[in-house]
Amino acid sequence: MMPQEGIFHSPGAFSGVAVLRLTRNAALPQLREVVSSIHEELSTTQGLRLVLGLEPALLPEAPTSPVLLPREGPTARFPSSQAHVLVQVSANERELLLFALRRVLALSKGVLYLEEELLGGRIGEGREPFGFRDGLARPTRDQVRRTALVPSGPLAGASWLLYLRFQQNLDLFSRLKPQAQERVVGRTREGELVVDAPAEAHIHRARASGAGENQLLIRRGFPFRHAGEEGLAFLAAAADPDSYRRSLDALLGTDGQTPDALLRYATAVGGGLYLAPPRGWFHCSALQERRPSHEGIGTGL
């Protein structure tokens, strides 16, 4: 099947994420009708990019995978705030992004309710809140196809989505001298490698995890500011959810590995694993007639 086209495109100048949960009395056929309506309208809106994922247990075709979140390391934790639907929208115009988020809510009435919403996007020429250049190695369409898409089986063309929301402590990070900041990141502010960066530098931990240079996952995240909080909405797409286990464990420093130094200044406060089905899924027969378990799906922080 054909993948969702939004998977192949960068988050754009303006990006948003809506995390939604099923209402108490909603049935799964209603969910499919709602998400199909969202996908049909927004994926065909000119200038707008959409990626829509569902909690994997809601798709009968999805294989059972080990629990990914929450995940513990010696000095940091990646919590779970798993919900039922995740929608990422991006555009080069803010008005179009706001239109898309409004339509997500309008089409969800009575079936889904909004649990979390983040708006952000590219800072200047592409800097994250700490002031470092980001997104230096943009994936090609072929890299996305090889790395982010399920290659065969009933979910061919699907993509596993990981979402983590990080709060960045700008005040604490700013107390470091510029050279110390660069050694934490492993790059200069302009993106050059720090040749003597320590093993705990973020660039080294990202490469060890497979999260760097489009090896095991394709990053789709963006910086945000919300109610005085600044941080990173980390999103990624991968063909195999096990890639995320390896990546998260390398960052956390499990099994004797070195924890990522950047996690001293960036705290994960929520996240979840979602499955973005291929385009044809939205037009197939209805989901199996079964009620979702609302208890235990969102474990909170």
Rank of each mutant, 00 (worst) to 15 (best):
M2C: 13
I7H: 03
I7S: 03
F8M: 09
S10N: 14
A13Y: 09
F14T: 06
G16N: 09
L22R: 05
L22P: 00
T23E: 15
A26W: 00
I38L: 06
H39C: 02
T45R: 11
R49D: 11
L50K: 00
L58H: 04
V67M: 10
L69S: 03
L69T: 00
P70D: 08
P70H: 07
R71E: 01
T75E: 13
R77H: 13
R77Y: 09
Q82P: 02
A83I: 02
H84R: 05
V85S: 00
L86P: 02
Q88L: 08
E93N: 12
F99P: 05
A100C: 10
A100R: 06
R102H: 10
Y113D: 08
E116V: 07
E116A: 12
R122N: 07
G124N: 06
G126W: 03
R127A: 09
E128D: 10
F130N: 08
T147M: 12
V150H: 01
P154Y: 08
L155Q: 03
A158C: 06
L162M: 11
N169G: 02
K177I: 09
A180Y: 09
Q181G: 09
Q181Y: 15
V184W: 06
G186C: 14
V195P: 06
H202G: 01
H204W: 11
A211Y: 00
L216K: 12
L217N: 08
P223D: 10
R225Y: 13
G228H: 08
L235T: 04
A238Q: 02
P241Y: 05
R245E: 13
D260R: 04
L262F: 14
L263A: 05
R279L: 01
R279A: 13
C284T: 13
Q288G: 13
E289H: 15
E289P: 06
G296R: 12
T299E: 12
